[in-house]
């Protein structure tokens, strides 16, 4: 088997007349933890349901572990562990009964499965609740049961739909480290709309919005994509008017926009938006030296993932910042 564990090509899914997933293509390699990011209703869950053979694509193909999700769905399902959204689990079974059921359904060796269930139960922190009914568990514990079920057979690929929803902060940290650990040897796809989660666990991010794939890259490369970033500069003017300083800064190569933030005691603060991903720290420093301003503060604020996410997923606003900055640039 090649390194590529999941291959999705032109995946499209229509629910009646609404298009939930629109021409999505990506591939995931072994050892990657892929974060599926998007607002609610973006098509994350639908894509996962197709990958786990619960639904079929209207168009396009998807291969999981080298098997086609439509034609070889049984083989696909043998190679994946899946945690559906909201963790639907039979409420009238105890934790151990449920895991034993999942093990039997997967055709695991009945002699070995109790040991394996115990092992995975400990790993997912289920030791205390093993004999309790699933219906009596809190959401956090139920989530862990779902995770244990997904990892029971040590699958090559884990597909987790919002794995940390309903967990308390401590549990979230535990589950994240668990996912990271698994991600070292296996392939993990997880969906979320919690951004810090992606930064903490994922080696790669797909952002999906309105059914379309709008970004694909590592957290760092996505942040870098968000143009330039923002600089905060505070200079002591030594008597120069703040507007003059602003015009100088705005005139620097690579600056999209410069605005005055505040001025006090002869120290002026400016916010500078860079036009491209060029590093503006040197030119700003040069300008300060050449103009004999005393540079009090120079700070580069790289775009946060939140900015990237907002810009990519809110359709009408997405075009704006770019358009605006090009106009500003033209003026200066």
């Amino acid at each position: 088997m090649s390194d590529v564990m999941i291959e999705v090509d032109g995946l499209t899914k229509d629910y009646g007349s609404t298009r939930a997933v629109d021409q999505v293509s990506f591939s995931v390699r072994k050892g990657e933890v892929l974060g599926f990011l998007g607002p609610n209703g973006a098509g994350k869950s639908t894509t996962m349901k197709i990958l786990t053979c619960f639904l079929s694509p209207t168009e396009g193909r998807a291969k999981v572990a080298g098997f086609d999700v439509f034609d070889q769905s049984l083989e696909v399902r043998q190679h994946i562990g899946y945690l559906p959204e909201d963790t639907p689990i039979y409420r009238d079974m105890t934790v151990v009964e449920f895991l034993a059921f999942a093990a039997a359904m997967r055709g695991m060796d009945p002699a070995k499965s109790p040991g394996r269930i115990k092992e995975i139960g400990v790993r997912c922190g289920l030791g205390d609740v093993a004999g309790k009914l699933v219906g009596e568990l809190s959401k956090g514990y139920r989530q862990r049961v779902g995770l244990a079920q997904a990892m029971l057979h040590d699958p090559d690929i884990l597909i987790l739909d919002e794995p940390t929803s309903g967990l308390d902060p401590n549990q979230i940290v535990e589950i994240r480290s668990l996912i990271k650990e698994i991600g070292r040897e296996k392939t993990v796809i997880l969906s979320t709309h919690i951004l810090p989660e992606v930064q903490a666990t994922c080696s790669r991010i797909l952002i999906i919005s309105g059914g379309k794939l709008v970004a694909d890259g590592t957290p760092d490369s996505l942040r870098a994509r968000e143009k330039g970033g923002r600089y905060r500069v505070v200079v002591e003017s030594n008597g120069v008017a703040k507007e003059a300083i602003r015009d100088r800064l705005a005139g620097l190569a690579g600056v999209a926009r410069c605005e005055i933030l505040s001025a006090e005691d002869g120290a002026h603060a400016f916010a500078i938006d860079a036009a491209a991903s060029s590093d503006l720290r040197k030119p700003i420093f040069r300008a300060a030296v050449d103009n004999r301003w005393t540079l009090l503060e120079l700070l580069r604020e790289s775009a946060s993932l939140e900015d990237v996410f907002r810009n990519l997923t809110t359709g009408d606003i997405a075009g704006e910042p770019g358009a605006e900055s090009s106009v500003e640039k033209g003026k200066s």
Binding site: K49, F54, L74, R77, P88, Q149
Partner: peptide, 8 residues
């Protein structure tokens, strides 16, 4: 969904 995404 859970049942059917098991290999069955």
């Amino acid at each position: 969904e859970l049942l059917i995404t098991l290999p069955v």
